[in-house]
Measured scan of single mutants.
Amino acid sequence: EQYVVVANYQKQESSEISLSVGQVVDIIEKNESGWWFVSTAEEQGWVPATCLEGQ
């Protein structure tokens, strides 16, 4: 499942990744806490779901 990044995010923990507007990410896991585990071409990590929008 692919989502587009709609807000920049700077990682704050080692388990997170930074996002840039316009990036496309694959969703691996959706957590009810509002944090999703995603994959980019370069890395995987947790990001806030509020930064993502379905395609």
Rank of each mutant, 00 (worst) to 15 (best):
S15M: 08
S20C: 07
A7W: 05
V47N: 00
G22E: 02
G34H: 05
Q44F: 07
Q12P: 06
Q12R: 11
V24Q: 07
Q2M: 15
Q10K: 07
S15A: 13
V38R: 00
K30I: 06
A7F: 11
Q44V: 07
I27R: 06
N31R: 13
V25T: 03
Q23C: 08
E32M: 07
S33M: 06
E53H: 09
E32I: 11
E13I: 12
T40V: 12
E1M: 05
L52R: 01
A49K: 12
V21Y: 04
S15K: 14
S14D: 13
W36Q: 02
W35N: 07
S15V: 10
A7R: 11
S39H: 08
S20M: 09
S33E: 13
W46G: 00
L52K: 02
S39D: 10
P48A: 02
A7Y: 14
N8A: 15
N8M: 05
S15C: 11
G45Y: 01
N8P: 11
I27P: 13
V4F: 11
E16N: 07
A41D: 06
A49N: 14
Q10C: 09
S14I: 14
G54P: 10
K30E: 08
Q12T: 13
W35T: 07
V47M: 03
Q55E: 05
E29Y: 03
Q44R: 13
E16A: 05
Q23G: 06
E16Q: 13
S33L: 06
Q55L: 09
Q12W: 04
L52I: 14
I28T: 10
W36K: 01
E13W: 03
A49R: 09
E13G: 11
K30F: 04
K11Q: 09
I28V: 14
T50S: 12
A41L: 12
T50W: 14
G34P: 06
S15H: 15
V38A: 11
V24P: 09
L19I: 08
V6Q: 07
V4Y: 14
V5W: 00
E42F: 07
D26N: 15
S39E: 14
C51P: 00
E32R: 10
V4R: 15
A49I: 15
P48C: 02
A7D: 12
G22I: 00
E16G: 15
E13C: 07
E42Q: 14
G45F: 01
Y9E: 02
W35L: 11
V25F: 00
I27W: 03
Q23V: 05
G54C: 12
W46D: 02
V24T: 10
Q55V: 04
S18T: 03
E53V: 09
E13S: 08
Y3F: 12
N8I: 03
V24A: 13
N8Y: 04
T50R: 13
E16S: 08
I17A: 07
E32C: 08
V5T: 05
N8L: 04
E1Y: 15
S33Y: 11
Q10P: 06
Q2C: 11
K30G: 04
S39Y: 05
G45N: 00
K11R: 15
W35K: 10
E29V: 06
V21D: 02
V24Y: 06
A49F: 09
Q44C: 07
S33C: 06
S33V: 07
W36N: 04
K30S: 05
E43L: 06
P48E: 03
V21A: 12
Q55Y: 06
E29D: 10
I17Q: 02
N31P: 07
E42A: 12
C51R: 04
S33F: 07
Y3Q: 08
W35G: 04
V6L: 07
Q10L: 12
E1D: 10
E29C: 07
L52W: 01
V47K: 00
Y3R: 09
V38N: 01
S14T: 12
V24G: 08
W35I: 07
V38P: 00
W46R: 08
W36L: 07
G54Q: 15
N31I: 04
S18C: 15
G54H: 04
D26R: 10
V25R: 00
P48L: 03
S15L: 06
A41Y: 07
G22D: 06
Y3N: 06
Q23F: 02
Q23Y: 09
I28W: 07
E32P: 11
C51L: 06
E29S: 10
V24S: 11
S18E: 02
V47I: 15
W46S: 02
V5E: 00
Q12M: 08
Q55C: 02
S15P: 10
A7K: 13
V38K: 00
Q10A: 13
W36P: 01
L19P: 01
E53K: 13
P48N: 03
S18I: 03
Q23S: 11
V24C: 12
E13P: 02
L52Q: 00
Q23L: 05
L19D: 01
E13V: 11
Y9D: 03
V47C: 13
L19R: 00
S18L: 06
G22W: 01
V21S: 06
L52G: 00
E29R: 15
Q12S: 12
Q44A: 08
Q10W: 05
I28D: 04
N31W: 04
G34K: 08
Q2N: 15
F37V: 09
Q55P: 14
L52Y: 00
V24I: 13
K11Y: 03
G54M: 10
Q44W: 03
K30A: 08
G54R: 13
A41P: 15
E53S: 12
Q12A: 09
L19A: 03
K30N: 04
S20A: 09
I27C: 13
S33H: 12
D26C: 06
E32N: 11
A7C: 06
E1T: 07
A49M: 14
V5I: 04
Q12D: 06
C51H: 05
N8H: 10
V38E: 01
D26T: 10
E29K: 14
T40F: 14
K11I: 01
I17C: 14
V38Y: 00
C51W: 02
W46C: 06
V4I: 15
V47L: 05
W46N: 05
S14N: 15
V25L: 04
P48Q: 03
A49Y: 06
Q44S: 09
W46Q: 04
E29M: 04
V25A: 06
A41G: 10
L52P: 01
Q55I: 10
E32A: 14
Q12K: 14
I27Q: 02
E43Y: 07
Y9W: 15
E32G: 13
E53N: 07
Y9F: 14
L19N: 00
Y3G: 14
D26H: 07
Q12E: 07
E1I: 05
E53L: 07
V25I: 05
Q12G: 09
Q12N: 08
E42C: 11
N31E: 09
C51M: 01
Q23E: 13
E16M: 04
D26I: 03
E32Q: 13
S20T: 12
D26F: 06
E16I: 02
G54E: 15
P48F: 00
V25H: 02
I27E: 00
Y9P: 02
E1V: 12
W35F: 13
T50L: 09
S33N: 11
E43M: 10
Q2F: 08
I17R: 05
I28K: 13
E13N: 12
E13A: 04
Q10I: 09
Q44L: 05
E32L: 06
E16R: 05
E42L: 10
Q12Y: 05
D26S: 10
V25S: 00
N8K: 11
E43N: 14
L52A: 01
L52D: 00
V4H: 05
Y9C: 02
E13T: 10
V21W: 03
N31K: 13
W35S: 12
W36S: 07
K30P: 03
G34D: 09
E32T: 09
G22F: 01
V6N: 07
G34S: 07
